[in-house]
């Protein structure tokens, strides 16, 4: 009758909940409104690690148009603009392998820590230029 799990269950009954909370306790009337409102009382997301690979940023001015990133991208997320010798990144296709940031000779590509990137608009995930990376801007 009393098996090994009973003390464990009773211990767990009074210990902290192990799961992460949902962003909101109840489904809000309008989800988009809450997502767009920065002051909405949402449970904070779990912080990401140091090596986390999130949304790509692209420094257009630095890019030399060598097309190496296109060569290594497994998901065909980078598109070459032959006229301008620059690229466009489709973040909705990106598989976040960080291979392009590794091969880029001028390091104009960088993985950020942003991961909530889904959007109703496809164009929101097309990166043409995000300017110099934050570190270089500070320096």
């Amino acid at each position: 009758m009393i098996t090994r799990i009973v003390p464990q269950l009773l211990k767990q009954l009074f210990s902290r909940v192990a799961t992460n909370p949902f962003p909101a306790v109840h489904m809000p009337p309008s989800l988009t409104e809450v997502m767009n409102n920065p002051d909405a009382p949402l449970s904070p997301p779990v912080p990401v690690g140091k090596r986390f690979r999130g949304r790509l940023s692209y420094d257009r001015s630095k890019c030399i148009g060598c097309r190496l990133c296109i060569k290594v991208c497994p998901a065909n997320a980078t598109e070459y603009l032959p006229g301008e010798k620059k690229i466009v990144i489709h973040n909705d296709r990106c598989c976040f392998c960080a291979q392009c940031t590794e091969i880029c000779p001028v390091k104009c590509l960088k993985m950020g820590s942003e991961y909530m990137i889904s959007s109703y608009e496809r164009r929101a995930n097309v990166v043409t230029d995000t300017g110099p990376a934050p570190e270089t801007r500070q320096a």
Binding site: K71, V72, C73, P74, A75, C95, C97, Q99
Partner: peptide, 8 residues
């Protein structure tokens, strides 16, 4: 795809 792409 080339081998580097096939890794992923």
């Amino acid at each position: 795809r080339n081998p580097i792409q096939v890794i992923y």
